[in-house]
C-alpha cells in the first residue's frame, strides 16, 4: 500500500491531517526511513496506530465545554440562592447577609465566565429551567419543601450539596484548562471561593442543628451525625451527605466519580470518593499516623464531568438541554 498516497487523499478532505498525526511533523521528517524499515507484516499495525492517534476518540471536553459546564452550575446555584432570599420565613435573618454575599459571588462568577466564553457562552437559562425539588421538571421531587417557608434545614442541606458538587466539578475540570493559563487561574479563583462558601454553609448547618443562627454557629461543635451537623470540611463520606436516602440521593455528591475516567481525562487522574486515603500512591493516614477521618478531610477529591452532569441534571427541567 502507498501510505503517502492515502494521506494525500485524506488531506484533500482534512487539511489538518498532518497536524493530527503530529503537529511538530517530527514523525514525517523521518517517516520515509521508518517506512523502509517496516516490514510488510508490521505495516498495518503501524498505520492503525498512526490513525488511531489522529482520529481516536481520546479528546476530552474543550476549554469552552468546561467553562460552559461551570457556567451552568453557577446559574444553578445563583437562582437557588436568589430564590431562597425571596421566600419569607426561609433564611434566618442572621444568615441573610451571608446568603446575599454568596448569591452575589455567584453572579460575579457568571459575569466572569461569560466574559471568558464570549459568544460561546450558553444563554442564561433563567429561573424556570431549574427544578430544585430534584424532580427533573415534575416540581414534586424530594427537596420540594427546601424553597418553602420553614424548609430552612433542607434548604441549607441542598445548598451544601450544590456547592460541594461545584467544588469537585472545578477540580475535575481544571486539567482541561491548562492550555490557557489565565483561564486556568480564573477557574482556580472561583474554585476556592466556592470552597469558602461551602465551609460557611456547613457552619450554618452546625448552628441550625443546635438551634443557633448567626455568629454562634461558628462556635458550635459538629454533631454526631455529619448528615445534619457536618464539619466545615468533608469527613469521610459525611454519611452520604444531607439526604442520602432520597432519589436523587446526595451520596453521589460525596461518592466516587466515573471509573475508569471518561474520555480525555489525563492518565493518572482518578475519581475516588471523598473518603479516599491514598494520594499519589501514599496512604495519608499511615504516613502521618492520623485517623482515616482526618486523612480524608485533608484532601478534597475531584469529580469528572460525566458524573457532575448526572448529578446536576436532576435539578433541571428535563425539557431543557442543561447538563446533557
Amino acid at each position: 500500500m502507498d501510505l503517502f498516497q492515502i494521506i494525500t487523499e485524506i488531506e484533500k478532505v482534512d487539511p489538518e491531517v498532518y497536524e493530527r498525526f503530529d503537529s511538530r511533523r517530527r514523525v514525517f521528517k523521518h517517516l520515509t526511513g521508518i517506512g523502509k524499515k517496516l516490514t510488510a507484516a508490521a505495516m498495518p499495525g503501524f498505520v492503525a496506530a498512526l490513525f488511531n492517534k489522529a482520529y481516536g476518540q481520546t479528546a476530552g471536553p474543550s476549554v469552552n465545554d468546561v467553562l460552559n459546564l461551570a457556567l451552568s452550575l453557577e446559574y444553578l446555584e445563583f437562582y437557588f440562592y436568589d430564590t431562597g432570599l425571596s421566600v419569607a420565613g426561609l433564611i434566618p435573618a442572621a444568615d441573610r447577609a451571608a446568603i446575599e454575599k454568596i448569591r452575589n459571588d455567584e453572579s460575579g462568577h457568571i459575569k466572569t465566565l461569560r466574559t471568558a466564553l464570549g459568544s460561546a457562552a450558553i444563554p442564561d437559562p433563567g429561573r424556570a429551567a431549574f427544578d430544585y425539588s430534584g424532580g427533573r421538571g415534575s416540581r414534586t421531587g424530594p427537596f420540594a419543601t427546601a424553597l418553602l417557608p420553614g424548609g430552612t434545614a433542607l434548604y441549607f442541606g441542598v445548598a451544601q450539596s450544590f456547592v460541594d458538587t461545584g467544588i469537585r466539578a472545578y477540580k475535575g475540570g481544571a486539567p482541561f484548562l491548562m492550555t490557557n493559563k489565565d483561564v486556568l487561574e480564573t477557574a482556580l479563583n472561583i474554585h476556592s471561593v466556592e470552597a469558602r462558601h461551602c465551609s460557611h454553609i456547613r457552619t450554618i448547618r452546625r448552628g441550625l442543628a443546635a438551634g443557633a443562627t448567626g455568629a454562634a454557629a461558628a462556635t458550635t461543635l459538629p454533631g454526631t451525625d455529619p448528615r445534619v451537623s457536618p464539619k466545615s470540611w468533608i469527613s469521610g463520606l459525611d454519611n452520604g451527605g444531607p439526604s442520602p436516602d432520597t432519589n436523587p440521593s446526595t451520596r453521589d455528591v460525596y461518592g466516587p466519580g466515573t471509573n475508569p475516567p471518561p474520555a480525555g481525562v489525563p492518565t493518572g487522574i482518578t475519581f475516588p470518593g471523598e473518603d479516599n486515603l491514598v494520594q499519589a500512591g501514599r496512604t495519608i493516614s499511615t504516613d502521618s499516623a492520623i485517623s482515616a477521618a482526618a486523612a480524608s478531610e485533608a484532601f478534597d477529591e475531584p469529580l469528572d464531568y460525566v458524573k457532575v452532569k448526572a448529578i446536576a441534571r436532576n435539578f433541571v427541567d428535563n425539557a431543557t438541554t442543561l447538563f446533557v
Partner: peptide
C-alpha cells in the same frame, strides 16, 4: 489535580 485537592481544604479552613 493534587494541588486542587489541597487548596479547597485550605479555603474551607480560611473561611
Amino acid at each position: 489535580a493534587l494541588a486542587g485537592k489541597i487548596v479547597s481544604v485550605e479555603a474551607r479552613h480560611a473561611a
